[in-house]
Each structure stands twice: as C-alpha cells, then as structure tokens.
Simulated assay, not measured.
Amino acid sequence: MPDQPSSKSHRAAPAHTDPGQVPLLGALSALADPVRLQLVRDLAGSEDWTRTCGSFDVPVGKAALSHHFSVLRGAGLVEQRDLGAKRVNRLRREEFEARFPGLLALLLRPDEV
C-alpha cells in the first residue's frame, strides 16, 4: 500500500468528534473526572502540539491515560496527531469555546479545584 508503513507498530489515527456535535451533558461528564480536568488544564497552559501523552503527571497508567484521552476526544476537547512514534495533543480551545461559550474559562480558573 502506498504511503502506509508496513511496521506492526503503526497505529490508526485517532478519531475526533466535532465539538458542535457534543451535547452539554457529554462535555460536563468528560470534564467531571479529576484526571481529565487536569489534562485539560495542563494542555491549556501548553503550546499546541508540544505535549506528548506521556508528558502529563497524572496518577494513572498508560491504559487509563489512553482511555482518558479517548473520552476527551469524544467530547471534542482534545485533538491528537502522531508525530513519529509519539502522539501529540492540543486543546481545541476555539472550537470548544464556540460550542460552549465561557465553559473552559470557568474550568481553567485557578480558584476552581
């Protein structure tokens, strides 16, 4: 197949949900978990595409971290892409803000723990 590596280590690109298709309760549910909220806060303080999945200091293993990122993608909050062997992330701040104005700002306030 052209443009497809034959290595078994190749992974499928992650699926992303359009934030415009996410119901409010879906977004709130994704953000209710403390680990996911921490991931979003950490991404909010980072440049787009600079954080790999393994660069977050959260108290979960790789499988659980993968699940948390999947939930955040499903809620339209996070976009991921592969950069070599690493997966990098960005917070879909503008897209999420357009769908739920003010919600991220409330969640990112330092007094909200």
Rank of each mutant, 00 (worst) to 15 (best):
Q38T: 06
W49I: 02
E47G: 07
P110L: 08
L107E: 05
P101S: 07
R41G: 07
G74S: 13
T52C: 15
E112V: 06
D33V: 00
E47L: 12
Q4M: 09
D18L: 04
K86T: 03
A30C: 11
S66Q: 09
L103T: 00
F100S: 07
N89Y: 08
H16T: 01
F56W: 03
E47M: 09
A85R: 11
L108C: 08
S55W: 11
K8V: 00
R99P: 02
V71L: 12
V113L: 15
E95T: 05
A15G: 05
R93E: 04
L108W: 13
V78D: 15
E94P: 08
R81V: 04
D82G: 15
W49K: 01
E79F: 09
R87F: 11
L83Y: 03
T50Q: 14
G54Q: 09
H67N: 13
E95M: 05
V35P: 13
Q4N: 06
L103H: 08
S46Y: 04
G61S: 11
S29Y: 03
V40N: 05
E112S: 10
D42P: 12
S29D: 14
R51Q: 10
G54S: 14
L106E: 15
S6H: 08
Q4I: 15
G74K: 08
V40R: 03
D57L: 06
T52K: 15
P19A: 00
A75P: 07
A85N: 11
V113W: 09
P101M: 02
D18G: 02
G20T: 00
P59C: 06
R93P: 04
E97D: 15
L91D: 04
R11F: 01
A85S: 09
E47N: 04
M1L: 07
R41E: 02
R90P: 11
T52L: 15
E112I: 01
H67T: 11
R81D: 00
P101Y: 02
G54C: 08
R93K: 02
G61Y: 11
R92P: 13
G61C: 12
S70T: 07
Q4S: 07
E94S: 10
P59A: 07
A98T: 03
F96K: 00
K86H: 11
E95A: 15
S66C: 12
V71F: 10
D82C: 13
K8H: 02
V78W: 09
L24Q: 01
S6F: 09
G84C: 08
